[in-house]
Structure formats: C-alpha cells, structure tokens
Simulated scan of single mutants.
Amino acid sequence: MSSVHEFTAKSITGDDVALSQYQEDVLLIVNTASKCGFTPQYKGLESLYQSLKGSGFSVLGFPCNQFASQESGSESEISQFCEVNFGVSFPLFAKVDVNGDNAHPLYNYLKSSAKGLLGSESVKWNFTKFLVNKQGQVIKRYAPTTKPEDIKSDIEKLLAE
C-alpha cells in the first residue's frame, strides 16, 4: 500500500468507510481512549477539526483498548462519551488494535511510514497522532504528549500546498 486512501475501516456505527473519501484532505489520525490521562485531548482535537475542516482537514479517531484497558466500552458507549463530554463531531471508527498480530492494516501502514522514537514502529500509548497529506502520505508521527494545538501550524502548511 502506498497511501492511506487505499484502506477501509469500520465507522463507530459499523459501516465500512473507504478512506479514499478523504482524498484531497489533510488528516490527523489518532488512536484514542476514554479513560486515559490524555483523554482531555479530545477537546483540542475537536477544536482543530472545527477551525480547519472547511479548509480540507479532518481528524480520524480510532479508539483502542490495548493500553491499560483504557477503552473498554462498546462503540455506542464510546461515541456517547465523546459527544457528551467533549462535543466530538469528527469521524470516529470502531475499536482497533494498533499493535500486534491483530493490528488494523491501516495502523501497520502508518507505523511503518513514520517510525517512533529510536526507529520503533510500535505505538507506545493512546493519542499517538499521525499527520497525513492530501495525497495520503504519512508526513509525521507525534507522541501522545504532543497537544493537538501544537500541531496546527504543521497542518496549515500542508493545507497550503
């Protein structure tokens, strides 16, 4: 695979979503969790989405329960939690594994395209972020500690290309 646009993922409501529908959009793909110290980043992600979605930008949230079981709820519970607590309106997907034998193929592509600290491919924790350009190429990986607002200038540069 040579682009995120070649993948399909299940939406949080169970529908197949071809990521090709995001061609010409800059994407921030994030593995999320509802019971994590970084969960308040949902607010920053939603703020980014609201301020830039009209320019061809989207956040794609992929709940993941692989880190300390911090996303143990059902898809409907996750969706409701995100909407009620953080007003999340950006696209959320069904829970995925980001590491291991059952990792979603999209995440295998993201990890191999933008390696982490010391060349590691594995995702270390919730709220690891991958920035993708309009052509579906992974540009950069951000650590969970990187706040969404600190990525805005990188997103704006890609939007201007």
Rank of each mutant, 00 (worst) to 15 (best):
Q66K: 09
H104I: 03
L118R: 01
Q135K: 14
F93M: 14
K35V: 02
A94L: 05
E149V: 03
L159I: 03
S69Q: 15
V98C: 00
Q41C: 09
G87E: 07
C64Q: 09
S55C: 08
K152S: 12
F62M: 10
I29F: 12
N108R: 14
Q21V: 11
Q137W: 06
P63H: 03
F38W: 10
L28N: 09
D150W: 07
A9M: 00
F90T: 07
I78C: 01
K140I: 01
T8H: 08
Q50P: 05
S2E: 14
L45P: 03
S120C: 13
S3H: 06
Y142Q: 01
L19I: 01
L60P: 13
L28I: 02
L27D: 08
S113C: 00
H5D: 11
F38G: 12
V96K: 02
N133G: 05
V132Y: 12
K147A: 15
K10I: 04
E6T: 15
S122D: 12
Q50T: 08
W125D: 07
P144L: 01
K157N: 15
G100H: 10
K111Y: 00
T128L: 04
K124Y: 04
Y142K: 01
H5N: 05
K140H: 10
L131Q: 07
S58V: 00
I151C: 03
S112D: 13
N133Q: 03
A103V: 03
Q80E: 12
K157E: 15
L118F: 14
G87N: 07
P105W: 01
Q80P: 00
T146K: 11
G37A: 07
Q41H: 10
K53F: 04
L106E: 07
Q50N: 14
N126P: 06
L159W: 00
D16H: 02
T128W: 08
L48V: 11
F90H: 04
M1Y: 12
E121I: 12
V4L: 11
E161L: 11
Y107Q: 02
T13V: 10
K140F: 05
A68W: 11
R141V: 07
I139F: 04
A103S: 15
D150N: 13
K43I: 13
V30G: 01
V26H: 06
S20A: 15
G116W: 05
L110G: 13
Q66W: 09
G136V: 02
V132I: 13
V98T: 12
L60H: 11
L28Y: 02
I139L: 09
D15R: 13
Q41I: 08
L45Q: 04
W125S: 09
I29L: 15
H104G: 02
S122C: 11
G100E: 01
V26S: 03
V132C: 11
